[in-house]
Design a protein around this nucleic acid. Structure first.
Length: 439
RNA sequence: GUGGGUAUAGCUCAGGUGGUUAGAGCACCAGAUUGUGGCUCUGGGGGCCGUCGGUUCAAGUCCGAUUAUCCACCCCA
């Protein structure tokens, strides 16, 4: 054998045994998004590097040291998307969706790429369910977006996830706060850690998020943003809290909550679990009222969140929430002899066209081994086609669960189909409604 | 980018202080009066013990490096 290759560091395959869990999760997410009238948006996996420099912010770690950036054959600087919001906003502006009816509500399920050191719940390619809502400035929208996240967490049955909310102000009040923070931390410069010295110069807000004990202790005494919010931000925050309370969504105000992406204004929030390791943020987002304008569109308030699919899956696994695979084979056709094998091919094809999941041996196995395979496939019924059956044109539909009685049947697709249907084993139309609308 | 743990079969792991042909369970394949699965029993295939170098008469075992992986910091989902 030739030398083996492995998937790149920090990436994972979803093997056939694991994809049912992904599909289940994605379906729940799509349905919940659908209930809130969100529509799916799709966008490229790579963008011009400048989009993220301008959108995410060039002081962020994500942009400074985690992007997969390369020059393409045309000499353009291209970057593999590190997060979804910038792409959605770009599409919103590029296609002038601001000229259409607002609010515009979109969701996506897409991979993101960041050059990080892999860890529990942290990958170099991870998948995100994200939603973005363009147009509304009202805190009702903040509450609805948070409500959507709350909605799928409930729909999945997840326990032990806490919601933390904060306001980081707006372009009017944040500069004052920055200044207040700056002077406060400047006075205690010697107790700050190395990285926080850097933060002090670039973005003192980040010091609040530092986990180093001395910094955290200092941060606890730092002036809180809530004290420096302008009236409009204060009203907005109060409105959000009132909405959340009315919706029965429990939350805590966390003055230390700061997000690492520069575009956030006012509301920021996180849904956090402490059961999946150190990387416990399962959903994070907020309002970004200036981003559309920053990326060349008209001033348009907007907000959204991103939610890590892999982290959600980890939690669902840990809490035993993932249902068994229901995509089982319905009929396994076992054959003996060349004539039967060819006939089984036509039977299987006809039944599949009628929406039955029909399986047959492709490995040239003995009848006994075929029955084993049938059992393993989870098939509800099996049908043996051998010399006798080819002679009499009749066979026996055998129930693989060993219960009830086996049914004689003529060896015609139509007859087999009606026999299956009479036992409640029905075909599924091959052009079904989209999964998110299926009940 | 910084720190710690681990690396033996497809998977989960055994292999005291170095000592002949490296093991188990699960999985896979084949049989158990030759046309019928699940349970049981029997047998089989499959490992340059992550890689390279060092110590030694002798290395899966000790030392070093390297790579991968896991966990934590940082940051984020």
């Amino acid at each position: 054998m030739a030398e083996k290759l492995a998937a790149p560091r920090g990436t994972h395959d979803a093997l056939p045994g694991q994809t049912p869990a992904w599909l289940w999760l994605e379906n729940v997410l799509r349905r919940v998004a659908n209930r809130f009238s969100y529509r799916e948006i799709r966008f490229p996996t790579f963008e011009h590097t400048e989009l993220f420099l301008r959108g995410v912010g060039d002081t962020t770690d994500v942009v400074q040291k985690e992007m997969y950036t390369f020059t393409d054959k045309g000499g353009r600087s291209i970057t593999l998307r590190p997060e979804g919001t910038a792409s959605v906003v770009r599409a919103f502006v590029e296609h002038a969706l601001y000229a259409g009816p607002l609010p515009l509500k979109v969701y996506y399920i897409a991979p993101n790429f960041r050059y990080e050191k892999p860890q529990a719940g942290r990958l170099r390619e991870h998948h995100q369910f994200g939603v973005e809502c363009f147009g509304p400035a009202s805190p009702a929208a903040d509450a609805e977006v948070i409500g959507l996240a709350h909605g799928y967490i409930n729909a999945l049955g997840l326990k032990g996830i806490a919601l933390r909310v904060n306001s980081i102000g707006c372009p009017v009040c944040r500069p004052q706060y920055h200044q207040a923070l700056g002077t406060f931390f400047e006075a205690h410069r010697e107790t700050l850690c190395h990285t926080c010295h850097d933060r002090l110069a670039r973005n003192p807000l980040r010091i609040l998020d530092c986990k180093n004990k001395p910094c955290a202790a200092l941060a606890a005494d730092a002036p809180a943003m809530t004290d420096d919010l302008c009236d409009l931000c204060r009203d907005h925050q109060a409105g959000l809290e009132a909405h959340l309370a009315a919706m029965g969504i429990a939350f805590t105000i966390d003055p230390m909550l700061v997000r690492g992406l520069d575009y956030y204004t006012r509301t920021v929030f996180e849904f956090v679990s402490d059961t999946i390791g150190a990387q416990g943020t399962v959903c994070g987002g907020g309002r970004y009222d200036s981003l559309v304008e920053t990326l060349g569109g008209p001033p348009t308030p907007a907000l959204g969140f991103g939610s890590g699919i892999e982290r959600l899956l980890m939690m669902c696994h840990a809490q035993g929430l993932i249902p068994g695979d229901t995509d089982r084979c319905q009929l396994y056709i076992a054959t003996m002899g060349g004539r039967a094998e060819v006939y089984a091919a036509s039977l299987a094809a006809n039944l599949r066209a009628k929406g039955i999941c029909a399986e047959r041996d492709l490995m040239g196995r003995s009848l006994k081994a075929q029955m084993k395979a049938a059992n393993r496939s989870g098939a509800a019924y099996s049908l043996v086609v051998g010399d006798d059956e080819m002679e009499t044109r009749r066979g026996i539909l055998k129930r693989m669960d060993g219960e009830g009685s086996d049914a004689p049947v003529a060896l015609e697709a139509e007859e087999i189909l009606s026999a299956l249907e009479s036992q409640g084993c029905c075909g599924i139309p091959l052009s079904d409604a989209p999964a998110c609308f299926a009940e």
